[in-house]
Design a protein around this nucleic acid. Structure first.
Lengths: 197, 197
DNA sequence: CCCCTTGTTGACTGTTCGGTCAAGAGCGCC
DNA sequence: GGCGCTCTTGACCGAACAGTCAACAAGGGG
């Protein structure tokens, strides 16, 4: 129980949030689970909202690690996207195992919820979503250069579509409580890379 | 102010929920906005959760009307899907105008949130999502029969993909507060109808 | 005219919420 | 040893929360 209180709070908050939603988790719940008094939480975070943003940052760190691993691989760009999608599905399934219920996308779900709280949280969230989409658009551009994707496909537009599709699969996975939905997302993503008529 | 209290409660609740989320809207807020005392609400609904399910039903009624209008038209199946997507985008934009903030999908967002509350709400939500997807899969089957879609495309699987994609666009639209994202969904949906490799 | 049903009221319960605060513990540095 | 910094405690605040209740209004049918 050394200087890891802050991290523990963020980790616990993340698990609880994924089990339901940010609004449904109370500061009290988080503190109790972390074995800490409320005053301690407010030593590290000025408000519940800022704790939420810290959780979003932690989730993004996790996601970025997954992205770097998949997109840093020596493989054709489309295959790197596949790799990531597989990793994404695995992450959702893992969280389902750890928390007992299927979460939404750790980035998208929180982003949509926190965005409604004001302009600053929204800017924070959209910056992360943009960074995520950039991984896709870079890979798409590279795939076009290699002739593996029709050059009439707009990389940025398509990256957003892939992102949206992944968000939607995660949302449906939560509604159905069936994480496999995300794990089967590969083919849908591939279809999005075909040129639209 | 005759016998329309129940309807008014549901309508007000819907608007408030779309401005944020089910959990963030209090029974008090709803009653105040509807010009009714709390006891009255509990005359019609045994709990806040049941009111949430009633809102979900109302949203589904609205969505089903949109679906019937689009899919009942005399037009090729793919065009009927286009019609619906356009209507869906318009609905989100309209809600944005009326409530001042971009909502998630009125079906998907609520479904994901209520599903976490137990098996009964989950069954309720998934039944609605299944009914929605059926509109798509029927149209896809018909398009295949007419040779407008590759017959190797699995109708049910693809319908779920379209549904997921629409959910995701709505979620991103809320996070970015840019309803146009949904209004541009047509091309993404079309891409999903191409066969996956 | 009374009764019964449907709806409404407004005050009430007990709980939980996010957030504050003064006091102190532990600890390294001068 | 004493100072200052970081962190923790636990009691406390007022507000908001979901839900309850007995009383009462309205009105149509017998």
């Amino acid at each position: 129980m050394a200087g890891d209180t802050r991290e523990r709070l963020v980790r616990v908050a993340r698990d609880l949030i994924h089990g339901s939603s940010f609004a449904q988790v109370s500061v009290e719940d988080i503190c109790k689970e972390a074995g800490v008094h409320r005053g301690s939480l407010y030593h590290f975070f000025p408000s519940k909202e800022r704790l939420g943003l810290a959780v979003l940052d932690a989730n993004w760190a996790m996601m970025a690690a997954l992205l770097d691993e998949a997109f840093g691989a020596e493989a054709p760009p489309l295959e790197r996207i596949d790799r990531f999608v597989r990793g994404f599905g695995g992450m959702i399934a893992l969280m389902r195992e750890r928390t007992g219920s299927t979460p939404e996308c750790p980035i998208g779900g929180l982003s949509a919820e926190l965005s409604a709280k004001g302009d600053e949280p929204r800017a924070h969230a959209t910056r992360i979503l943009d960074a995520w989409a950039a991984y896709f658009s870079d890979a798409i551009r590279e795939a076009e250069a290699r002739g593996e994707v029709d050059p009439t496909v707009d990389p940025h537009e398509t990256a957003l579509r892939i992102l949206a599709y992944l968000q939607g699969t995660a949302l449906l996975a939560k509604a159905y409580d069936r994480p496999e939905i995300v794990e089967h997302a590969r083919d849908g993503v591939r279809a999005l890379l075909a040129p639209s008529r």
